[in-house]
Nucleic acid binder design. Structure first.
Lengths: 236, 236
DNA sequence: AGCCGGTTTTGCGCTATCGCAAATTGCAGG
DNA sequence: CCTGCAATTTGCGATAGCGCAAAACCGGCT
């Protein structure tokens, strides 16, 4: 009973260097599930019983402080893994995962990981690669938060989202899932008010078109310029 | 010719689950080197020809922006690996590594990594664990930068340094390597001026004792309280 | 078509923190 | 012991961005 078509996932980085037959064996250990928009997939602090591969949709990973503030750790795009607590030796999820759109995921029990890695060492190598890349992105984000002001950070964040999950339109690039001002604030370390002000500004300059939970970059190129402008390089 | 005594490194997380004979084989591929205080080990952007294991001393990994600002990514303590660009599939170092004290490192050629991983899959698993942990720490740092103010961030940073590289004294805990106000600023996303002001304040309250590139936490417990204080929880 | 609730916008005062500049200090060499 | 330099301290304005509050908006649902 082929629950999941191997051809759909064979090309993913996670499975690089894994033989097709082996892939089948790996997939047999997984089940798939559908999460409707705005449903939680797992909660920060819960037992890390599973790890996930996103097939369709979009998932937001967010971290919450003891006092309730949240930051968005990342948006997961189709083809990416998430909830890899076990890979880092954590027994509990360090963040909350929530479907921001109707989403379909593959789910493996965490307990299967050691066995899978033993049988298919490429999995560990591939995951290492992935996690390493995320670590670098994290450092870049820290660098930005330390050295750039809010407008630049927002510009960078939107450009990254556009690259990761942008849908090309005639009029520009639309970010392909619902995202609020609050979300952007939580990605860039600011407040929804400030995000709103800045997007309003951009909108009046024709750089973006935005509505409820929806953003279109009309002038990606000009936004790149914004993103790279240093604090002092004069504006008009 | 036993260049490095296996017993000195056998217990390190990197080598968990590796047989002693195997360890010997791994170490044979490494050479060791000594870097004097304030010498560069590798530069951001340079070809990632080697990866490293710190045996003695302390190393600072820092990332520089195009405009020259720096942030400290982390301080490497003895027993930790650094310069793992290859593990994440990067051809160049994403940061600069500098010995902040006279340091001794083991050096493997990056080219040896694939072979080592193939022969000893535990290396990949262990490294994944390490990198995963760093990723989490990174996220924590982002969370702090997003939600806490400078004083709290500095408190957390110093407490972490104390835990990682603190030397217990009768009078408190001393951070075991030279570290300037500027360094702390680059760890917490602020300026050396602000760090200086805050440390001065703490010093006059008897929380710390600090001099040139030297910091002693006299009242770690009270600093913990500071670190955890929320923006509004009133001060005296 | 009309209503409701979440989202976004915007005004306004406030302040934490920056940025610059100048004075001071402490360590390292000679 | 003295000198010079780098690290640190501190004062003082400037300001980016926050926080609160109120209004306007927009969609979806009935």
């Amino acid at each position: 009973m082929a629950k999941v078509d191997t051809s759909l996932v064979a090309h993913l980085p996670l499975f690089a260097g894994v033989a097709p037959e082996a892939l089948d064996e790996i997939l047999r250990e997984a089940r798939s599930a559908r999460y409707p928009k705005n449903s939680a997939i797992f909660e920060q602090g819960a037992d890390a019983q599973s790890f996930f591969l996103l097939l369709h949709g979009h998932v937001r990973a967010a971290k919450t402080t003891p006092t309730g503030e949240q930051i968005v750790v990342r948006y997961v795009a189709p083809g990416e893994t998430f909830g890899l607590a076990m890979a880092i030796g954590a027994a509990r999820y360090p963040a909350t995962a929530m479907a921001v759109d109707d989403s379909v995921v593959l789910i493996w029990p965490t307990s299967a990981w050691p066995r899978l890695v033993e049988r298919f060492p490429a999995l560990a190598a591939n995951t290492l690669q992935t996690v390493g890349t995320r670590l670098q992105e994290s450092h870049t984000r820290i660098l930005e938060m330390s050295t750039q002001q809010v407008e630049q950070r927002i510009a960078h964040a939107l450009l990254r989202l556009a690259k990761q999950s942008g849908k090309k339109l005639d009029q520009g690039i639309e970010i392909d899932f619902p995202i609020s001002r609050q979300d952007i604030a939580q990605m860039t370390g600011t407040t929804l008010h400030t995000v709103s002000r800045i997007l309003s500004g951009w909108e009046s300059q024709g750089l973006v078109e935005s509505g409820r939970q929806r953003i279109i970059l009309r002038e990606p190129h000009k936004i790149v310029v914004l993103a790279e402008r240093t604090p002092d390089s004069g504006a008009a």
